[in-house]
């Protein structure tokens, strides 16, 4: 039996743990709200009082300055108070269990936990154990999910392409170890794109990849044929040590996105990357900085999307939880 932890009885978002289990309407609703927070580049985002008096706790068990900062900024722009709790350097190293950490933080009356953890399922675990009025946003758990990243990617795609249904999207690189890829695949399929392709060597693709609703390619050139969107994934250096790849050099030779390879895609294709990028490993600098790249837009849209998710989740309940 599968519970849907994420939705309340009225079908509204209570937590955001994974794209799985959300309907197209949920995703579109989030993107629509994000639209109202997104501003043109160069203009200042207006601070709104939507979450005044609310406390958002960033609970990061894994270091990520970048993601944490965008969540923090999003919360502050909604007028919430923000607590940053970096657990990898405090509690668990003293032998405290995750549940104990959670109980302690709950005693500080947090309304929302933004959780990053190295174990798949950590956000689900926390959502199952928080007090009734408290919500959880998954900011990345193991290899499982990173739903706000996927949503900001969808937002970026929608801004450039409008309609999802005719699109062919290629995700290139280390799918197996990527929570971003899993969430993107689910979001793209939920939004009804024509095709999702994943491209990479066998060692970096999951065991039953096709069960995710994707087409597999091992050859980058043919995989990029006629695609509208190219999403490059970051290659972690430790993949070479785990006997998954021979070298960064060979990886770039086979799977690095160069200008020549980019020509295989549609002329108006966009190039995305969740960052931080490894120039010369998965992407050539000319492409990362070139006219097809929307990588920096992704970062700024990330704030609007996270504002949308937070306001939706905390607004869905109405009132505080005191």
């Amino acid at each position: 039996m599968r519970e849907n932890l994420q939705l309340n009885e009225a079908g509204e978002l209570r937590h955001l743990l994974s794209i799985e289990g959300l309907k197209r309407e949920h995703l579109e609703h989030i993107l629509d709200i994000a639209e109202s927070f997104a501003v043109l580049p160069g203009r200042q985002v207006k601070k709104v009082p939507l979450l005044r008096g609310r406390i958002v706790t960033n609970l990061f068990f894994e270091n990520s300055t970048r993601t944490r900062t965008t969540f923090e900024l999003a919360a502050k722009l909604l007028s919430a108070d923000v607590i940053n709790f970096n657990v990898s350097v405090s509690a668990t190293s003293k032998g405290e269990t995750l549940l104990d950490t959670l109980r302690n933080l709950e005693a500080m009356h947090s309304d929302l936990f933004v959780v990053r953890h190295s174990h798949s399922g950590a956000a689900h675990f926390i959502a199952r154990h928080v007090a009734p009025g408290v919500s959880v946003i998954n900011a990345g758990d193991g290899w499982h999910a990173h739903p706000t990243q996927a949503l900001l990617d969808m937002f970026t795609i929608r801004r450039h392409k409008g309609d999802f249904t005719p699109l062919r999207v290629a995700i290139v690189g280390d799918i197996q170890h990527s929570r971003v890829a899993r969430s993107q695949i689910m979001a793209l399929n939920t939004l009804g794109v024509t095709e999702v392709r994943i491209i990479g060597p066998c060692t970096l693709l999951p065991a039953e990849a096709r069960s995710l609703g994707v087409h597999l390619y091992h050859d980058l050139e043919s995989g990029l044929e006629e695609v509208d969107v190219i999403i490059m994934l970051r290659l972690q250096r430790e993949r070479m040590e785990g006997a998954l790849l021979p070298s960064a050099h060979e990886y770039f030779q086979l799977y690095g996105l160069t200008e020549a390879r980019l020509k295989r895609a549609k002329p108006d294709a966009i190039v995305m990357h969740p960052g931080p990028i490894n120039r010369g490993v998965e992407i050539a600098s000319e492409v990362a900085d070139g006219p097809h790249s929307v990588i920096l837009q992704q970062v700024s849209y990330g704030i609007a999307v996270r504002m949308a998710v937070m306001s939706l989740i905390l607004g869905a309940r109405g009132g505080g939880n005191e």
Binding site: E20, S120, G121, G142, W143, H144, A145, A207, S211, L212
Partner: peptide, 15 residues
């Protein structure tokens, strides 16, 4: 088990 569920949930699999 290294199969469809591990693939979807992003859990390390045992083949």
């Amino acid at each position: 088990h290294e199969g469809a569920v591990a693939t979807r949930l992003g859990l390390p699999g045992i083949p």
